[in-house]
Computed example of a mutant assay.
Amino acid sequence: MTLSRPAKVLLRVFAGLVMAAIYLPLLLVILNSFNATTSGAFPISDFTTRWWVAAWHNEGVRAALWTSIQVATIATVIALVLGTMIAFALSRYAFFGKNVVNLLVVLPIALPGIVTGVALNNTFKTVLEPLGIGLGLFSVIVGHATFCVVMVFNNVQARLGRMNRGLEEAAMDMGANLPRTFIDVTFPGFRSAFIGGGLLAFALSFDEIVVTTFTAPPGTETLPIWIFNNMSRPNQAPVVNVIAAVLIIVSMIPVYLSQRLTGDDKR
């Protein structure tokens, strides 16, 4: 389909407005993290890095950062294992209820986070807590893993659907056993999707706040929870901007790397 010149100009203007609406507020947050005033006045007349230094020396921020890294890392590892196994099961085998299982796997990413959070909160408090498993770091990791699995599953399943099974059969015909075939032929075929899904899962977990609110016990804070708890404190506003800027940067890097991996694979 060929568009007229006015239509192309209109589409570019519309795309520019959408991008501005999404990214200008984020840019403002990053700029305010260097604003010397605590009021966040704009335009910025004086730049400083003291809020970044203050954020680094803030014990609450450092504890929240460590908690976020722990949760995101472990949830990503769980997602890589479970997501890949489920993707292989649904891509390579036919069984009764296959479509239902596929729906149940991807459903957590479509459900509102508050629904998942409330469901997990009730499960831990009414079912698991009497067994000695209450709310804690474990419950937060489980909550994050429920939607991180979907990121890995979608990436790996899509790649497995495009792989040439004949290469695996040829490797086994030439004497390679199943583990050697997987290491030398199968895994390299979906490796970029595997890593890309893990990067997206880490970014999603690192930014999560809704599910964390319902699965974390009092006193346990991730970086998003720390921001939420300190937004109403005027003296913490500059530091909040710094942490928000960190979250923006940390989120962009995995997404960018995942996109590059996918792009390289397509080429």
Rank of each mutant, 00 (worst) to 15 (best):
Q70V: 14
A64Y: 05
A201I: 10
S251T: 15
P234M: 04
V13N: 00
I30E: 01
R50D: 15
T126E: 14
P218Y: 11
I74F: 07
M85P: 01
E129P: 06
R162P: 02
T49Y: 09
W52T: 11
N122C: 04
A170G: 06
A72P: 08
I78R: 02
E129D: 14
T186M: 12
C148V: 06
T67L: 13
L247I: 14
L11Y: 13
S139C: 12
T49E: 04
I74K: 01
M172I: 12
V105D: 01
G83H: 01
V152T: 13
A110H: 01
P238D: 12
L31C: 10
I249H: 02
R5E: 13
V246A: 14
E221G: 03
I44C: 05
V149D: 10
K8P: 07
A203G: 04
W56Y: 10
L17E: 05
T38M: 10
V18I: 15
A87L: 09
P218V: 14
I249Q: 01
N58I: 07
M19Y: 14
I227Q: 00
L120E: 06
S258Q: 06
A72M: 08
F147Q: 03
A89R: 01
T181I: 08
N122H: 11
V100D: 04
P25C: 09
G161N: 14
L160M: 12
C148H: 00
A75F: 02
L27V: 14
N241T: 08
A63Y: 03
L167E: 13
A41Q: 08
